[in-house]
Structures are given as structure tokens and as C-alpha cells.
Design a protein around this nucleic acid. Structure first.
Length: 257
DNA sequence: ATGTCGACCATCGGTCGA
């Protein structure tokens, strides 16, 4: 079973590319972020024609997450991260599908830092930790997939000295991410590629793609029983280089049946 | 230092977020 996460940066602008990717790679589950569409503008019919059931949490202009499943409809388990009723951002969706609990996560970017956006990011990460701990305590087989907006180590960016002032590399952001790992979650790509050098994002600016100035911020975190089933993982890098591509590449894991 | 892109409002450019 293949599970992918893909920050698509606008579902309407990327729809042809997205349908092409689904057809070429046939993930069983696809977690999407930065849908950038209101609920009623989500192209559910296009996905259904492609053989994918979908649930989504939309928002005008920004954010927005979705979960697609091949020849199945995910059963929604949680909409929005618990812990702050005043948080209106559409950044979290959780569903049961194919015997797994799957979350699609669009973690706040947090720039500029310091500032209120960075404070929001760190509070959001505390809430994610609490939710993840609930799933862990209940021993639910789970995959927390998405754009974490965290560069976990210096091996996860093209230059160890790049972006040091950025919210994605702050010690507080990295510590919050590492706390998840310390509590039993497995970073699938980090486990499979300990040497690093695997990117999932290349900025649109400054020729970052052409220079391979990327970094790794799209992560799949696996609960223990799911980690035991991990047989392969990777990044569909060539999709980043196509016409009208997102600035992220699809990132995936393969689980033993 | 800068380089791009999508959504939106409301046009044909500016603003925001990334």
C-alpha cells in the first residue's frame, strides 16, 4: 500500500498535474495540503472520475487539506486540530481508511520570526503533539503526513548555513518536531535515507529548482506498528520539474500489506 | 539584494502568503 503526501499549492491551478500524478503513481492514499479552495470549490467530481474518493477541509485563498483514497472514501475522524476553538485555519484533517488512521497536516510556516506567526506555529505544534499522543496511547495504527514546515536537521537542506534565520530551522521548531519522534513516531524518510540529501521542496524563487537548492519539509510520521510495515519510501522528484508544478514534490511510503 | 507563484478583489495591478 502506497501513501503519499503532496503540498499542491492550489488545487485548481494544479488539477491537470495532480490527476496525471494520481494516474502515473496510483497512491492508495494521498494527503493534500495548500488546497487553497473553499469547500464548495473543491473538484471532488474530477477525483471521483479518476477513481478516488475524497474528504476535504477547505478555506478561501489559503491553507486547506484533503485526503484521497483509491476506490474508497475516507471516513472522517477529526476536522481541525483540537485545543484552540479560535483557530480558524484549515490545516488538519484525520480519517480512517484501509485500516489506518491518516492525518493530512499543513503545519503553519511561522515566518517572520520572531512574531505572532511564529508563536502560532509553536502553539500549533504543541497541539499536534497532544493529538499525536492520544493516537499513540490508543495504539491506533496511524500515519501523520503533511507539510510540517520544519527542516529537521542540517542534512535536510542543500546548505547547512542556508535559512538559519527562517522559522523552518529555528531550534524551537526543530525541538518540537524531535519531541514527536522521541514519543515514538518514526520519520519514514529519515529512517530510510540516514545520509540525508533528500529534498521535497524547492522554492519558486532564485532558480532554486535549477540549482537543486531544496530541503525536506514534507514528512510521514508512522506509529510503531505502521513503522514495522515500512518497506520503501521516496520522493516523486520529476513531478517538481514539470510545467505548472507545485513548489513541493509528492513524498510517499510503501507499506507491506 | 534579487530572482516566483497562486488566490483574491476587481480588473488588466496591488496585496497577501509562502
Amino acid at each position: 500500500m502506497r501513501i503519499a503526501t503532496y503540498n499542491i499549492n492550489g488545487v485548481k491551478a494544479r488539477l491537470p498535474r495532480l490527476l496525471e500524478w494520481l494516474d502515473e503513481t496510483k497512491p492508495d492514499i494521498a494527503c493534500l495540503q495548500e488546497v487553497k479552495s473553499q469547500d464548495d470549490g473543491f473538484p471532488v467530481g474530477e477525483f471521483e472520475r479518476a477513481g478516488y474518493g475524497a474528504i476535504w477541509h477547505g478555506q478561501k485563498s489559503f491553507n486547506g487539506v484533503a485526503i484521497l483514497a483509491r476506490n474508497a472514501k475516507p471516513v472522517e475522524a477529526q476536522r481541525a486540530l483540537p485545543g484552540d476553538p479560535e483557530d480558524e485555519h484549515a490545516r488538519y484533517l484525520e480519517a480512517d481508511v484501509f485500516g489506518l488512521r491518516v492525518a493530512s497536516i499543513y503545519l503553519p510556516n511561522g515566518n517572520p520570526q520572531p512574531g505572532p506567526k511564529f508563536d502560532y506555529k509553536l502553539k500549533w505544534m504543541q497541539r499536534l503533539r497532544a493529538r499525536a499522543a492520544e493516537l499513540m496511547a490508543a495504539e491506533i495504527p496511524a500515519v501523520l503526513a503533511g507539510d510540517y514546515n520544519v527542516i529537521p536537521t542540517p542534512k535536510d537542506i542543500w546548505s547547512a548555513s542556508a535559512m538559519l534565520d527562517d522559522a523552518l530551522r529555528q531550534p524551537e521548531s526543530i525541538a518540537a518536531y524531535r519531541t514527536l519522534l522521541a514519543e515514538g513516531w518514526t520519520d519514514a524518510l529519515a529512517t530510510h535515507y540516514p545520509q540525508g540529501g533528500v529534498w521535497t521542496y524547492w522554492d519558486f524563487q532564485a532558480g532554486a529548482w535549477q540549482r537543486d537548492h531544496g530541503f525536506r519539509i514534507d514528512h510521514l510520521l508512522l506509529s510503531p506498528v505502521v513503522a514495522d510495515r515500512l518497506i520503501a519510501c521516496g520522493v516523486d522528484k520529476d513531478h517538481r520539474g514539470r510545467e505548472k508544478a507545485s513548489d513541493h514534490a509528492p513524498t510517499w511510503i510503501e507499506l507491506a500489506a
